[in-house]
């Protein structure tokens, strides 16, 4: 196993999260807005072709944060455009991100079947 990659993932992932934390504490943005900001930023960086350098350097440190999800959407759209033209812009992004979206929906549904919310205890 490549432990340097694991370390790099730790460092870059941590840094991206710290940026999010500063946004939360300094701007009072709600969680939904933070997530939107990250996914959009990631998509733009991906569209410009810059985000892949982060992924090459730190692997999951760049792909796991939501910026990576945005990058995946943008990359998917571009790849499909190359093969299918305009239609690809519509199919590519969602196709690339399908696994994440489907998994979250499916596991969310299962969770709602088996579990109930509980109050935060100290």
């Amino acid at each position: 196993m490549d432990w340097t990659m694991v370390l790099k993932a730790f460092i870059l992932g941590g840094i991206i999260c710290v940026i999010g934390q500063i946004l939360i504490d300094k701007t009072k943005l709600t969680p939904a807005r933070i997530l939107v900001a990250f996914v959009t930023t990631g998509a733009i960086l991906g569209g410009l072709g810059w985000y892949k350098h982060l992924i090459n350097w730190a692997g999951c440190g760049a792909s796991v944060p939501l910026t990576g999800f945005g990058n995946l959407l943008a990359k998917g759209a571009i790849e499909e455009v190359k093969t299918n033209g305009l239609i690809g812009a519509f199919t590519g992004g969602t196709k690339a991100a399908a696994a994440g979206i489907a998994a979250a929906i499916f596991f969310g549904y299962i969770a709602s079947l088996v579990s109930k919310p509980k109050i935060k205890k100290q």
């Binding site: 939360i24 969680p31 979250a104």
Partner: peptide, 21 residues
Amino acid sequence: AGAGSLVPITGFANSIVSPAM
């Protein structure tokens, strides 16, 4: 952890699962 668990894909999943519950 704040953004530590929100920003990774775990936060996206949590934001779908928690309203479902």
